[in-house]
């Protein structure tokens, strides 16, 4: 995907070693990305809870997400300070749109270098190592490489907006978005509400919708994909000063899609973000956002049905509900089939 990533052995070795640096033996990298996915879909960063839920659900991701979400709903909630870009430490940042971007490209631990061949070699299979492997720590700060903070890098989206002769669709008014778990989306969701819904979207649904959306676009390129560690702060109950309470890995992506701007060819910028390091989630969310910003349907779906389709808790639950007895309602339809209205 990245034409500028040169196949240097040193680079590949360095990238692979970052997986090991996360604290797990290289042969048993653990299931930390699955844990990340559960946290992201549940909308709660709690890796230990996610690991426990996965075990309890015997690996069923949908159930695990529900377990975590239900547990989180029982906990008191504190409003966190908005996350400051200046606090986000980059572990990876690449662009498929330009070879050089302000701030540079940082390869980090690229999933592309993982072999796609099933490895039948020795692996550490103890459950503890497998699930808790990387602990709660983020995927290692590539210490010593001087990886920058997010603010130092600028944004590719900003570059395009500032470029002369390039039209970028104006986003709808920015603002503070509601937590989709607390407030319903409503009939005309704000962009932030859409973002929040996508950020917690079910991974498979996000990827599926992104695929059908991509089939209808003329152009969709990852302007920027950035993985970092964000500091989450809450105000101290006494002093009111912000206190760091968590470091959450975060993946964000900006997708530049084609759009009609002022009657001519231009761009719509889509933004996708997800807790954790499953990059596909952020990319898919960004594709969906870019499609909606361009005013196009997502695989034939308008915005609300598309967002409903990625609400994993709702969709899994509804499909699962088919197992419940439907005897009475079914009998009613059966009657309709057997006894059609006779001629008048």
């Amino acid at each position: 995907m990245y034409a500028t990533v040169q196949a240097s052995e040193r680079l590949i070795a360095a990238s692979r070693s970052l997986i090991g640096a996360a604290g797990a033996p290289a042969t048993a990298p653990g299931l930390e990305l699955l844990r990340d996915q559960v946290c992201a879909e549940a909308g709660v960063w709690a890796p230990e809870a996610a690991a426990r839920a996965l075990r309890q659900a015997r690996g069923d991701v949908g159930r695990a997400v529900t377990l975590v979400r239900v547990w989180a709903a029982t906990l008191p909630a504190h409003a966190a300070e908005p996350c400051d870009d200046a606090s986000v430490r980059i572990t990876r940042r690449v662009s498929a749109a330009f070879a050089d971007i302000p701030g540079g490209q940082w390869l980090g631990s690229s999933p592309d270098f993982d072999s796609r061949l099933l490895d039948w070699g020795e692996a550490d299979e103890s459950p503890a190592a497998v699930l808790d492997g990387a602990g709660g720590a983020a995927n290692g700060d590539p210490a010593g490489t001087g990886a920058p903070r997010r603010t130092a890098l600028g944004r590719v989206g900003g570059l395009l907006r500032a470029a002369p002769g390039v039209g970028v669709a104006e986003p709808r008014d920015p603002g503070d978005g509601p937590d989709p778990f607390d407030e319903p989306l409503g009939s005309n969701p704000t962009r932030e509400a859409r973002q929040a819904a996508l950020a917690r979207g079910e991974t498979g649904a996000l990827v599926a919708l992104a695929n059908v959306a991509l089939a209808g676009r003329r152009e969709a390129v990852a302007g920027e994909l950035c993985v970092g560690v964000a500091e989450l702060c809450v105000p101290h109950p006494r002093s009111g000063r912000p206190v760091r309470v968590a470091e959450v890995p975060v993946s964000e992506a900006t997708v530049c899609g084609d759009a009609e701007v002022d009657g001519t060819a231009g761009f719509a910028l889509g933004f996708g973000i997800s807790a954790g390091r499953v990059e596909r989630r952020a990319l898919a969310a960004a594709v969906i956002d870019a499609t909606l910003e361009a005013g196009a349907p997502v695989g034939g779906l308008a915005e609300l049905p598309a967002l409903a389709a990625v609400d994993g808790l709702a969709t899994s639950g509804f499909v699962d509900h088919l197992r419940l007895p439907h005897f009475a309602s079914f009998a009613s339809y059966l009657d309709r089939v057997r006894n059609p209205e006779g001629p008048r």
Binding site: Y2, T4, V5, D112
Partner: peptide, 13 residues
């Protein structure tokens, strides 16, 4: 080649 480039990782693989 990948977008014209022999050196791209995907092309090399």
């Amino acid at each position: 080649i990948d977008q014209g480039d022999d050196g791209s990782f995907n092309a090399a693989a």
